[in-house]
Every structure is written in C-alpha cells, then in structure tokens.
Amino acid sequence: MLLSIFQYDFIIRGLIAGLIVAIIAPLIGIFLVLRKYSLIADTLSHVSLAGIAFGLLFGLNPALTALGTTVLAALGIEKLRNSKKLYSDAALALYLSGGLALAIVLLSLAHGFNTSLFNYLFGSIVTVTISNVYEIAVLALIVMATLLLFFKELVFITFDEEAAQVSGLPLKFLNLVFIILAAFTVSLAIPIVGVLLIAALIVIPVVTALQLKKGFRQTILYAEIFSIFSVVAGMFLSFYFNLSTGGTIVLTMLFIFLIVFSNRRQRLLHWF
C-alpha cells in the first residue's frame, strides 16, 4: 500500500531529483550559515525568479535562464561585498527586491503563464521532467566535485578569513567559487521546493545539526541525515495527503528542528 507511490514515474523522477537536492543543499548551507550569509540563498532564489520569468517570456529553458541570472547576481553580490561601499545585508536587500521587481515586470509583460509560474514559486514534484532530473544531476555533480576540491580551504576561510588569507590561500578566488556554487545550488533546487522555499532547504537542516554541537564533518553528516529524511518524508506526506511538496518538506524540516532544539539541553541526545 505504502509502496504504491512508486508505480508513478513522476514520483520516481521527483524522488531522485529531491534526493540529489537534499544531499547538495546542506553542503552549501553549512558554509552559508556559518559565514552568516543565510540571506544569500533567499536573495539568489528571488533573483532566479526573474530568470525564470525571462525564460518563460522569451520561450527559453527557464532552468537555464534562472541559472544564468543567479550566477550573474551572485557575482554582483560578491563584487559589491568586496567594494565595502555597502553593508552586506543592504547589498543583499537590493538584489532581492530588484530581482523580484524585475520578475513581476516581466510577468506583467507576458499576461499569463500562471500555472507554470505557480510551480516555480512553490515547487511541485509532479512537474519534474526527465530533463529536469538530468539538469539537476549535472549541476549537483559540478557542485559536489568543486566542493570536494576546495573543501578544506572553504572550512578555513569560513572559520577565520584573515588567518586563511595570511596563510596564502587565494581568498578572492575561493569566495568567488563558493558564491557560484551557491547560485548553482539555488538553481537546482527550484523544481523541488520552488523559489520561495529554497533558502529553507539550504539553511534549516544545517541549523538543526548545529544544535547537536559536533565537529565540522559530523555536523555535515547530521545535516545530511535531517535533509534527506525531511525531503523523503515530505514527499511521501505530500503525495498521500495531496499537499504542496515544497511546503510539506520545509514543515518537516522545521518539525525536526523544533524536536532537536527543545532537546538540546537535555541528556536525551547524548547518545548521538
């Protein structure tokens, strides 16, 4: 009965895409959260909406136009941050509101495509196509391979940017690589949770794992467990109760966070 979910091809496609996103999101999320850049995920996702609107308006692949605009915005944010002419959060606010405003204007020009837009906003595994799965898999491979290459350096600059720079690590290059990876991750998560909930997927499992007070690698491991469990459970629940996939996944994540957070000071979790 429970396994009847697997007789539908679209569910299998959605699950594969969801699992890939669930694995990648915390890997980027841990660096974003610890560098106090959580808002970047939200900003890039709003900017990606402008890319999607652009793609829909001109008949281009919205996934690719979203990726393009997100990467461009990520580079712009990093440049603005380096110039130190604006506070970091103010720079993010400019991009977030600018991206959303551009998306709305483009959408008003098109006078329509409400259904597909709704899917991009809130995500839907029903709409995940086989080409979506391939796109997500390729992006995920790029993100994973690059993270593996620069993992130890990213850990150092996240903990102590100044000391990392003094030790000779190429700080600007690493920051650039990282922000592009964040843009890739946002783009690949759109079909699953939608533009409005991507930040939750990237941030919540990491914040939950941080409550367990473990070392870096163990924190990533726990974030992965929380993320994968939430995505799979959220998809099952949304299928059986006919709920929004993105919303259900994020509520599952929040539920786990609340359990872990409320048990943080108790000895209950000591056996972890």
């Binding site: 850990v155 903990f159 070392g215 870096f216």
Partner: peptide, 23 residues
C-alpha cells in the same frame, strides 16, 4: 571567535596546514 562554530580542536589546528599542503 564564533564559539558556536562546529569545529574540534584538531580540526582548527589542521587548518594551519591547509595552505602548506596546497589546493
């Protein structure tokens, strides 16, 4: 420093070796 940073003493000390080891 960020006392909530999830790193063990060994992980922090290892960081000093990263640049020496190279990308």
């Amino acid at each position: 420093f960020d006392t909530n940073f999830p790193a063990t003493v060994r992980e922090v000390v290892s960081m000093g070796r990263y640049a020496r080891r190279g990308l």
